[in-house]
């Protein structure tokens, strides 16, 4: 009996957020489907999931950054830059293999992340400030390399556009890429030394240092990983929408942070789970998809999204306070 309550307590500790999110997602889905049965159609669901893929990919990187008690505001600019550089390359060499295009985007992202790493690690600039600075700089650079023009579908090769639009075994490439990355990240974060060191640094940087973990190395890598994800996502974005512009993904960093927050990643660092982040991204994706289906004007979308984030974090506070009160009341005094 004692064992069971203990396990239940652990279940509550580990999974309450995920269960809550899942229930909320189901509730929203069912409500939407009652109003418009098209919601649960295969076409709509697969559309929705592939639309959410890029957000969920970025959320992995952002979660890793936030676990170290950092934040990255520059990702949308990095996406725009990597997308633009790739699109320009494709425009110049139409025969470029899609794989190479992805690699170019990845390289740009890694470079962008690396520069931020230098400022955060070597010059100890607060992450929010360093990434705010480079958010501007990379965005400016995007306009600069493109001379403020945009690259449209006419200038892109079919192969390039198929990166995000193609299917393997009937599943959209984006979804496959996202799934692969989630599996990879899951293994990396839970089953490798380096993955655990990321959590250790976020949980207590001082004792991580004392116990011999190279915290600088960990922090450096974290922003490079984020850059790589953003670079990759930039290519996918441009390929999906078949256009690269100066204002590509403008403001998207906030959506990604919101997905993490909904998924229960604490901004204090040290904790965060991939399952939560995935559900958080899905919830945002469903909202985007569902509102038009039930004839809610698109102008309502932002307000509803903001309100839901607020309600989610506030109800989480109430939930936590209740749990805390219960534990207190159980003390024998």
């Amino acid at each position: 009996m004692g064992k069971r309550t203990k396990n239940l307590g652990r279940f509550q500790r580990d999974w309450s957020r995920q269960v809550g999110l899942t229930l909320f997602i189901i509730a929203v889905s069912v409500a939407v489907d009652i109003r418009n049965p098209r919601f649960f159609s295969v076409v709509n669901l697969s559309d929705m999931i592939s639309n959410t893929a890029i957000l969920s990919i970025l959320a992995i990187g952002m979660m890793i950054v936030i676990i170290t008690a950092g934040i990255d505001l520059s990702i949308a600019s990095t996406m725009a830059l990597s997308g633009m550089v790739t699109a320009l390359t494709v425009q110049a060499n139409r025969g470029l293999s899609p794989m190479l295009a992805l690699l170019i985007g990845l390289a740009v992202g890694v470079l962008c992340g690396g520069v931020i790493s230098v400022f955060v690690v070597r010059f100890s600039v607060a992450p929010i400030i360093a990434t705010l600075g480079f958010m501007n700089a990379y965005r400016g650079l995007t306009y600069l390399v493109s001379h403020s023009n945009w690259v449209g579908p006419g200038q892109m090769s079919n192969g390039f556009m198929m990166i995000a639009r193609g299917k393997i075994l009937g599943i959209n490439n984006l979804v496959i890429i996202a799934m692969l990355l989630y599996l990879l990240a899951f293994y990396f974060l839970n089953y490798t030394r380096f993955g655990r060191q990321i959590y250790a640094v976020g949980s207590n940087a001082e004792s991580a240092k004392v116990s011999g973990i190279n915290t600088n190395h960990v922090l450096f890598t974290v922003y490079v990983i984020m850059g790589a994800f953003a670079g990759l996502a930039g290519v996918l974005w441009v390929s999906k929408f078949a256009s690269a512009q100066g204002d590509t993904a403008l403001g998207y960093e906030m959506n990604v942070i919101a997905a993490c927050v909904l998924g229960g990643v604490s901004l204090r660092g040290g904790s965060g789970k991939l399952s939560g982040v995935l559900l958080g991204s899905l919830l945002l994706g469903i909202l985007n998809d569902a509102l038009p289906l039930i004839d809610v004007s698109p102008f309502w979308q932002s307000a509803i999204q903001g309100a839901i984030i607020l309600v989610a974090v506030i109800s989480n506070v109430f939930f936590k306070r209740r749990v805390e009160y219960k534990t207190l009341a159980r003390r024998n005094i």
């Binding site: 906030m254 102008f299 309502w300 307000a303 984030i309 506070v317």
Partner: peptide
Amino acid sequence: FKEIAPMIVTLSTMTMYRGIAQI
């Protein structure tokens, strides 16, 4: 709600206020 970081609170109201303006 002291438990919620101000960054998160204002992130959600940032989306919300502009959303209301759009409505």
